[in-house]
Design a protein around this nucleic acid. Sequence first.
DNA 1: GTAAACCTGTGAGTTAGACACAGGTCAATC
DNA 2: GATTGACCTGTGTCTAACTCACAGGTTTAC
Lengths: 137, 137
Amino acid sequence: MHVRQLAKMLGVSPDTVRYYTRIGLLEPQKSIENGYKFYSPNEQNRLRFILSARDLSFSVDDIKQIFHKADEGESPCPTVRRLIDNRLHETEQRFQDTLRLRARMHTAVENWGGKPDKKPSGNVICHLIDEFTKTPE
Amino acid sequence: MHVRQLAKMLGVSPDTVRYYTRIGLLEPQKSIENGYKFYSPNEQNRLRFILSARDLSFSVDDIKQIFHKADEGESPCPTVRRLIDNRLHETEQRFQDTLRLRARMHTAVENWGGKPDKKPSGNVICHLIDEFTKTPE
DNA sequence: GTAAACCTGTGAGTTAGACACAGGTCAATC
DNA sequence: GATTGACCTGTGTCTAACTCACAGGTTTAC
Ligand SMILES: [Zn+2]
Ligand SMILES: [Zn+2]
Ligand SMILES: [Zn+2]
Ligand SMILES: [Zn+2]
């Protein structure tokens, strides 16, 4: 199975498969004849796993660590539990940040609704942005 | 005013100021004597504006466009209104994505709480991740 | 046989800075 | 005046997770 077919089967772009291959997450056999990469059922399964882990926000480096454990025959579960704790904290942080940002942006747009356009002058580059920042209440 | 002093005054890292300078958002005068960059009050004001815009999620490229308008004496306000609409959609998308991800992760961690560690076998690399993906209900 | 359509691997580009580092500058000594 | 050490500078390189560009190889249709 070549890169495009595998990509289509699992619903990702060929470039994504190429990327995972390039960094060593996938190790297809290389055809001597034309240099094309051939993905065995085992590699297909590995990609499936990568995508499952990705959907839980595991990073590529996390997945490398998980594979490393599994390839040595050890249980990757402790690693997985430890890693997802980090990712959970990150996600919570990102969630809170995005929540705050969204509120700020909504407030700004509402404030700007009744304001006219103005040309820049003196220190004021855009009065919308300048004034919104200076009066945050 | 040199890079470190300016950075400290506005609460960002010197590298951030250097970055904005490198990409042309700031244009300090260059001392002929020692090559150090000198930031005038006008440049200081520009950095203040950059940081205000950044806090509303305007990208560096957005800010370039805003500066371009303002430098030509035109009102950047229409540009600003158009750009923030895009950023608002992006932020909303990111918010929803993060919300969903957070729920998925919480569910996963709860499911994994009562499960033992297992060694990899056959097609299963990590049963926690594999089984969670396959039984999403 | 040839032309077009399709596919491949590799190299480079993307964001918004962070980090490393060789060297320049400045104040306080001696 | 020379020297030491602390501090500061610009420039080059690196990051995550891909996406895009591109020269060339392969397959199919006629
Ligand atoms: Zn496991
Ligand atoms: Zn924790
Ligand atoms: Zn404006
Ligand atoms: Zn809209």
